[in-house]
């Protein structure tokens, strides 16, 4: 019994020990005056700022603005990536037509496009959504293409023998076979999505978490800046958890995803 408790607590609680010690140390350092609040505010002050901004509704407003941007971008870039990957993955003609062009564009460092994006779209909403879309497009495109291409040929042959038509073959064999790879693409692109959102919001905006932190920087409100950073981290973690849940659900047949 004691052993069991120890084992359970070591798998569930042990990972939290180090963060807890760090935060406590940080709080102590701030309170003892070793750490200037202009460099780094105390964790409790960040929490207080969070409660304040949260109760005034301001935090929620910025959160929704950022969330909308991120997922609009994901929706546009992700579906384009999936659709193009679908075509190039299934047809040699589409591959020859599109793939080398897309691979060339992929090699452009996307953040280098920011000056152009500002010229094209100004500093409005479109530019930010464009950047996020562009960032999520490639991981999803590449992994969809690769996933469809690497479906076991033997299984496809088997499907044909059993009289599956093109649609049934896609539904029963090709898509499920490509799904693990497509989900890897989704996970990667979620990472890029938040990264590009931060960059886009930091350039200029009038709402969103990036705006909140940049604005706070002007007034030296380090607690709000840290709050914003923590929020980005939280959003990143939340979307990663969501992607893991999707994998668990869709890939439950797969040995590596079984719980």
């Amino acid at each position: 019994m004691l052993n069991r408790i120890l084992r359970v607590s070591s798998t569930w609680l042990l990972p939290w020990l180090l963060p807890l010690v760090l935060v406590l140390g940080w709080q102590a350092a701030a309170q003892l005056g070793w750490l200037s609040t202009r460099v780094l505010p105390a964790p409790l002050d960040v929490l207080k700022a969070g409660i304040e901004l949260g109760s005034s509704g301001e935090l929620w407003h910025h959160f929704v603005a950022s969330f909308k941007r991120a997922f609009t971008g994901l929706l546009i870039g992700g579906s384009l990536g999936f659709i193009l990957g679908f075509f190039t993955g299934l047809s040699r003609f589409a591959e020859n037509l599109l793939d080398s062009t897309l691979q060339m564009v992929r090699n452009v460092p996307l953040l280098a496009l920011i000056p152009l994006v500002i010229l094209w779209f100004g500093i409005g909403e479109e530019g930010k959504v464009f950047l996020v879309s562009l960032a999520v497009f490639f991981p999803i495109y590449l992994n969809t293409f690769h996933g469809l291409r690497s479906v076991d040929k033997d299984l496809i042959e088997m499907g044909k023998i059993y009289g599956l038509g093109r649609v049934a073959l896609f539904r029963e064999v090709i898509l499920p076979g490509a799904l693990p790879s497509i989900l890897v693409g989704l996970r990667l692109s979620l990472g890029y999505m938040w990264l590009f959102l931060v960059v886009a919001e930091t350039i200029s905006s009038s709402e969103g978490i990036g705006y909140m932190t940049m604005n706070a920087r002007e007034f030296l409100q380090t607690d709000v800046v840290v709050l914003g950073i923590a929020f980005y981290a939280l959003l990143g973690k939340a979307s990663d958890v969501a992607a893991t849940q999707l994998e668990r659900h869709w890939l439950k047949w797969h040995k590596s995803y079984r719980t």
Partner: peptide, 23 residues
């Protein structure tokens, strides 16, 4: 005509019975 191979070629993402009912 049906053919059976050295490897079973079952779809790993379908249950046993779904595999049998394929097609």
């Amino acid at each position: 005509v049906r053919i059976m191979f050295q490897d079973s070629r079952l779809l790993p993402w379908r249950t046993v019975i779904q595999n049998v009912a394929l097609g």
